[in-house]
Design a protein around this nucleic acid. Structure first.
Lengths: 351, 351
DNA sequence: ATCACTTGTGGGAGCGCTCCCACAGTACCT
DNA sequence: AGGTACTGTGGGAGCGCTCCCACAAGTGAT
C-alpha cells in the first residue's frame, strides 16, 4: 500500500519506461496494465502492479492527453452569473449529483460560469482549445448560441433541461409535465378549486411544461383553468413576491398556489403571510424542486421532487456514450438521445 | 478578428508547424510570438499573428503541458463538504475574488472539494499527478494533513487564513485582530458596556485573533473583558443560536453582542427576538464578514468587512510568485511570505 | 580589419505517453 | 506437415509543443 517514496534517481516522477524496466517488461505492456486492457497475463499484470506501487507511479496526464487526444475532463457549464448559481439550490443539487456519479471515474469535473460576456469569451476559447472531452449544460435559455458553438466544434454535450420539444442536443429532463399534474391533482384532491400558478421563466422549456401540466390537470378534472390565475414569475424570490401580490390583488378568492419553484414559493409565502392569509388553512401552497428551502419553510412546503441525483447520473452516462461514440468519426446519426426521469410529490404541511 | 474557419486540410486543428509554414517562418518563431517573447521583430510578429488568425490556431494545451512541464491550472481546494461551501457566503466570496483576478490570465481555476475521506483520496491522487501548478487552500483546520502533503509534493500553495502564527505556508489573511477591535470599539462608542462575544471555531486561527481583538479593545478602554461573556460558537447559524441562548440565560444584562460571523449573528438575532429583546434598542448586534446576510437582515447588520476581492487578488499574486520561484530548483528560502489586509467596519442599523 | 557582443531566427531533441504493427508461442483444425 | 487463429508481448512512430543551441546579420569598439 504505502509507496516507498522511492522516486527515480533524477528526483522527478517515475515514467512508464522506468516502471517497465523495474517490472522487466516492455513499455506497451505497462500501458496495457495501467489502462486495464484484458490482453495481459495475470503474472505479468501482478509484476507490473508491484512495480507501480514500489515506484509510486502516477501517469502523466499531459502526455496521455497528447498521445490519446483526450483529456479525461468534462465541464459543467453554467450560463449564469455566479450569484445565481449560489442562490439557486437547483445548481448545487445538480453539481452534487454529477459529482457523485463522477466519483468512481477517472474523469475530472470543471465548473465553468459563463454569465458575463467576458466569461463567455473565455469559455469559447476554452472550448476551441478542446480542453475538455465533453460538456454538461444546465439552465440554457432558448436563444443561447452555446449549443450551436458546441456542435460546430463537434464537442459532445448533454443538456439538462432541453430548450424545446425539438432540442437537438442529447438531453436529460425530469417529467415537468407530470410533476405539475401531480401537484395540481393533489390540491384538487384536498378540495381546492381556485388554484393559481406562478410560472417560471417561460423561455425555459421546463417552465412551459409545468404550465401545460397545470392546465391539463385542471381540464381533465373538469375544472378548466382560469388563464388569469396563471401569473408569470422568473424563478426568483422577488419574482414570486411580485406575482403573488398581483394574484392577491386580482383574485382575492384563490385558495391554492402552485409555484414553479421553491424559491418563488418562498416569496409567495411571505406576501401571503403579510396579507394575513394562513397557510394552509386559507391558501394551500405547493412548490417545485423539493430543495432545502422547502424543508425549512414555515410551514414545511409541499413540493415536487426531481430526482437530481439520478439526473446527474443520467447526464454523465449519456455524455460518456457520446464521447465514446464520437471517437471513431462515426455516422453521426440523427438519433438524439433523451432521458426523462419521473418526479415525486413530497407532501408537507403547506397543503 | 473573425476566424475564417479554415482548418488544416486534414480536418483537424491547425498546429504550430502549419502556422509557421503559412507565415513563412520557423516553428520556434511562432512559439515565441504565441508566448509573447520580446525577441521577435515587429514584421515577423505581424505575419505570424495574421497566420494565427487565418487558421484559427489555438495552442494544444496538452502538448504545451507536456513540453513545458506546467499545466496553467491552479486548484482552489475546499477541505469541507460541498454543503458547507454553498451555505457559507465566505467561500463564494473568495471564489468570486479569485475568479475576478484570474479573468485576465490564461490560468484555469479548478474547484475541488475535499470534505469526505473519499474526496481526499481523490485529491491526493490528483495532486500526485501534478495536474495543477499550484493550490489555493481555504478554511484549513489546525490538524489538517493537507499542507504537509503539498510541501512534500513540492506543490506551490497559498493558504487563506493561516493555521497559526507560525504558519509554514505562504498565507493571506485579513486583519482579524484589528477588525474585532474596531467592532468592539464601535460598540463602546455607542455606550455599550456589557458586550458579549460569540466566537468562531477556536481551532481556526482567525477566530482566535478575533477573540484577542475583542479582549484587547475592552482592556485598552479600561473595561477588562468578562471572560464569561465569551461564548464559543462554530460559525454555523445553529451554533449562533445555541451560544446566544446560553448568554441570555447566564447574562440577562448584556447590552451588545459581537458575533464572529454574520451567519452566527443571524442565529443570535433569532434567539434575541424570541426572547423579546429589541435590536438595537435593547441589544446591539455586530457581525463579521459583511456578507449578503448582513445587508438583508432585519434590521440590517453592522458587520466587519473583509476585503475578499483583494484577498483573492493577493492569493493569486503570491501563488504566481511561488510558481515562478520554484521553476528553477531555487534555494527554497525560509522567507515565507504573508499578506495581511485591512478590514473595514460597515455600520448599519443593528448597532 | 578584427574581435566581441547583440538581435532575430531556424530547427533538433525530447517531454511521457498511446497506438499499432510485428512477432513468438501455443492451440486446434485440416 | 501445413495452415489458420488467437494470445501475449516488445518497441517504433508520433502526438504538438518548449527549450535551447547554432548561426547569420548587424553594431560598435579596438
Amino acid at each position: 500500500m504505502a509507496s516507498h517514496g522511492g522516486r527515480g534517481r533524477s528526483g522527478g516522477r517515475p515514467t512508464l519506461e522506468e516502471v517497465a524496466a523495474r517490472a522487466g517488461v516492455g513499455r506497451g505492456t505497462v500501458s496495457r496494465v495501467i489502462n486495464g486492457s484484458p490482453r495481459v497475463s495475470d503474472a505479468t499484470r501482478a509484476a507490473v502492479e508491484a512495480a507501480v506501487a514500489e515506484l509510486g507511479y502516477v501517469p502523466n496526464t499531459a502526455a496521455r492527453a497528447l498521445a490519446a487526444n483526450r483529456t479525461d475532463a468534462i465541464a459543467l457549464v453554467v450560463p449564469e452569473p455566479e450569484t445565481r448559481f449560489f442562490a439557486e439550490p437547483y445548481f448545487s443539487d445538480i453539481l452534487r449529483g454529477v459529482g457523485a456519479e463522477l466519483a468512481d471515474t477517472e474523469m475530472q469535473l470543471l465548473l465553468i460560469f459563463a454569465g458575463s460576456d467576458r466569461e463567455r469569451q473565455r469559455l469559447a476559447q476554452y472550448l476551441a482549445a478542446h480542453r475538455v472531452d465533453g460538456v454538461l449544460l444546465v439552465s440554457v435559455h432558448a436563444d443561447d448560441p452555446l449549443p450551436d458553438l458546441l456542435s460546430q466544434l463537434e464537442i459532445p454535450a448533454v443538456i439538462s433541461g432541453p430548450r424545446s420539444a425539438a432540442e437537438s442536443l442529447t438531453s436529460v429532463d425530469s417529467d415537468n409535465y407530470g410533476g405539475a399534474r401531480s401537484a395540481v391533482e393533489h390540491l384538487l384532491g384536498r378540495g381546492r378549486r381556485r388554484i393559481a400558478h406562478i410560472t417560471g421563466r417561460l423561455d425555459v422549456y421546463g417552465a412551459q411544461r409545468r404550465v401545460d401540466g397545470y392546465r391539463d390537470a385542471l381540464r381533465d378534472a373538469g375544472h378548466p383553468a382560469d388563464e388569469l390565475l396563471i401569473e408569470p414569475g422568473d424563478f426568483t424570490e422577488e419574482g414570486g413576491r411580485r406575482a403573488m401580490r398581483l394574484l392577491l390583488a386580482h383574485h382575492p378568492d384563490l385558495d391554492a398556489v402552485f409555484a414553479g419553484s421553491d424559491v418563488m414559493a418562498a416569496g409567495a409565502r411571505q406576501v401571503l403571510r403579510e396579507a394575513g392569509r394562513r397557510i394552509p388553512d386559507d391558501v394551500a401552497l405547493v412548490g417545485y424542486d423539493d430543495s432545502a428551502i422547502a424543508r425549512h419553510m414555515d410551514p414545511p412546503l409541499t413540493s415536487v421532487r426531481q430526482p437530481i441525483q439520478e439526473m446527474g447520473r443520467a447526464m454523465i452516462d449519456l455524455l460518456q456514450t457520446e464521447i465514446a461514440d464520437r471517437r471513431p468519426p462515426a455516422s453521426r446519426g440523427l438519433d438524439r438521445r433523451r432521458a426523462v426521469l419521473p418526479t415525486e410529490l413530497v407532501v408537507r404541511a403547506s397543503s
